[in-house]
Design a protein around this nucleic acid. Structure first.
Lengths: 207, 207
DNA sequence: TCGGGTATTGGACCGAAGGACAGGCCGGGG
DNA sequence: CCCCGGCCTGTCCTTCGGTCCAATACCCGA
């Protein structure tokens, strides 16, 4: 099993070299040709179009890790989505780098613990969490109120909601009033924010 | 390092026992008391309130894995969110289980490859993809218009936006008018929908 | 049978939102 | 110098959104 390091320039990352003394430094183009399924490849996030490179290399079956000097949750996602199985700070201690290598060569995923929380938290919210909250919120409404709320959240005006549901605009307003009371929101704006995930609300504090 | 298995009943998972012959089967209550930071704990997803249990055990610093007979992306998130570092099918082959154990005891995360794609894919799209569009949209506005738009999307009223930016409510309306024209939306509702990802828009067709 | 929740509508009222029309100031080009 | 675009403001007016006070009708459990 060979270990490769792909970077834009010829940077030697000291900690990294310390961790993998037998590794080879290659250019993006070479990587595409040389890498095989048994290899472990480290890609610096300063390589242009690195997500594309990672995606290509992934097809070879190799274990891929992305390194960044300024890790962000977003970039972490980008890396994982492209097929990398690790996302680490470029200046991580050699023990950490070796640990990550061990993990990814065993089909595992390695992300710094601090990023982990945010990554998983974000992902969870994105997939299930937000929906669940939304559902719970909607369950507090009656059937009719739910219809109205959902229509309003689509951006329809009261008149449009009325047409869609075959009732008077007046009735829509009545339902909306009930919805606002039950959910404790002040207007339709806050309603869509509530039902579209997102922080509690960004109301002004000092009147 | 001890390996524990937490389950509701006294089920013996054959593949699991095969993988960890020296492991101990414990009840949820015992687990809370016995587990230490060096241990590796496997929790069956049929234990009632398993997410809570996982969260408690996580504080001990132990490596946690959740096993399910019917894995779903959603449950996977729930497990990871609770603090588990692995989520595997209860009937996985012993090699896989041992591999997962190796990974999680080295701070890695282990999720079945097929679930991985759906999990990361969905999350990335939700986190990163949407904002890119949002940024592109915002770039079409002038600096001031951007400020107004962002404030409006937070749910602030014109008056509140005016206070925040230190300008007149009239001016806020002027900026908003320009924003609506530029982005081709009819009102603030459509604006928040546009800037909060989500489908094109659900305008009425007729009339 | 009565009370309570739900669905529906009416009218009146008022503040928020948005458009029309008109200006003001400033800075960068042609 | 003039013109244009960004930014800021004003007045007038219309529509929309939300609330209050009622009222009718249905259904359902006590």
């Amino acid at each position: 099993m060979a270990t490769y390091f792909v970077s834009q320039g010829r940077d030697e990352i000291p900690r990294w070299r310390e961790a993998f003394s037998a590794a080879r430094l290659v250019a993006p183009a070479q990587a595409r040709a040389w890498v095989t399924r048994e290899d472990c490849v480290w890609v610096m996030a300063d390589v242009e179009a690195w997500p594309g490179l990672v995606e290509v290399l992934r097809r070879s079956g190799a274990a891929l890790a992305v390194m960044s000097y300024a890790p962000t949750p977003r970039e972490a996602f980008q890396a994982l989505d492209a097929g990398a199985r690790a996302y680490v700070h470029a200046l991580s201690p050699p023990e950490v780098l070796r640990q990550a290598a061990l993990v990814i060569t065993h089909q595992g995923i390695w992300v710094p613990p601090d990023l982990m929380a945010r990554v998983v938290g974000g992902a969870f919210q994105a997939l299930g969490g937000a929906d669940r909250l939304r559902e719970e919120t909607l369950q507090r409404l009656t059937e009719r109120e739910r219809s109205v709320a959902l229509a309003v959240v689509e951006g329809l005006s009261n008149k449009e909601v009325a047409r869609r549901l075959g009732i008077t605009e007046r009735t829509v307003k009545a339902h909306l009033g009930a919805i606002f009371r039950k959910l404790g929101v002040r207007d339709r704006m806050q309603l869509v924010l509530r039902l579209s995930q997102r922080e509690p609300q960004a109301l002004e504090t000092g009147h």
